[in-house]
């Protein structure tokens, strides 16, 4: 076991880098962080569209959210993998493909979290802000969102953790993230599948637990 660790430890952490593309745990963290950073604004925009007074904006976005929610992430990944190149005429890299799939998929879920959070703020808060003369944007930013964010925090953390775990579906399109690397290592070592996949599970646990704690800590501070 210890010689496997010595041989494959670095491979597990960074893939073939620097002799090949970055992979392993580093790629997983990079993909997870990028997906979160991208999915959050997507989620906020979709949520604002979803509660908009304009049907032109509300209806298509509502439809899109229902479609995404009614589809497994795996389908969205395949869809991004095969459909994007067909439309753009260029082959999209695996990382970008996965990032787009995660941003759209989690954006749709986050949109519902954000919408519930915003709509959970009492109407009187908006009325009070508007009656003072604050405009729609100022009211959202100064009054509604700060209160909504506090209510949303547990659901947000939930979704963030899910996103992080979903990066492992990159496996299916050959993205060399940590789960893919683990299975590669396993097929070379052959005799230690339990140990290898336990190490993978622990790695994900540490990542997700750390993220949840970090978010909780940030939440207490705001």
């Amino acid at each position: 076991m210890s010689e496997s660790l010595a041989t494959y430890g670095l491979y597990f952490l960074i893939g073939q880098y620097p002799n090949g593309p970055l992979g392993g745990l580093a790629l997983t963290i990079l993909l997870g962080a990028s997906a979160l950073v991208l999915a959050m604004p997507v989620g906020i925009l979709l949520a604002l569209a979803r509660i908009s007074d304009w049907r032109v904006v509300r209806w298509p976005v509502t439809g899109m959210i229902y479609i995404v929610r009614g589809t497994p992430l795996l389908m969205v990944v395949f869809w991004a993998y095969f459909f994007l190149p067909a439309v753009t005429g260029k082959k999209t890299g695996q990382f970008t493909t996965m990032l787009i799939a995660l941003a759209i998929f989690n954006g749709a879920y986050l949109a519902e979290v954000v919408r519930a959070g915003i709509q959970g703020v009492p109407r009187g808060q908006t009325e009070a802000a508007r009656s003072l003369g604050l405009n729609y944007g100022q009211t959202l930013r100064r009054i509604v969102v700060p209160q909504a964010l506090r209510n949303m925090l547990p659901s947000l953390v939930n979704q963030f953790v899910t996103t992080l775990k979903e990066t492992s579906l990159g496996y299916i399109i050959g993205l060399q993230e940590v789960a893919f690397i683990a299975s590669q290592v396993n097929s070379q070592v052959i005799v230690h599948p339990v140990a290898i996949y336990t190490a993978l599970a622990l790695t994900f646990f540490v990542l997700c637990f750390g993220l949840a704690r970090l978010a909780g800590w940030l939440g207490v501070r705001t």
Partner: peptide, 20 residues
């Protein structure tokens, strides 16, 4: 509308102070 509203004070039954 926003400038107009800032020239009229409005007090609600439920106070509606900003709790945060």
């Amino acid at each position: 509308i926003d400038r107009f509203r800032s020239g009229i004070g409005f007090v609600f039954q439920q106070f509606n102070l900003f709790p945060h």
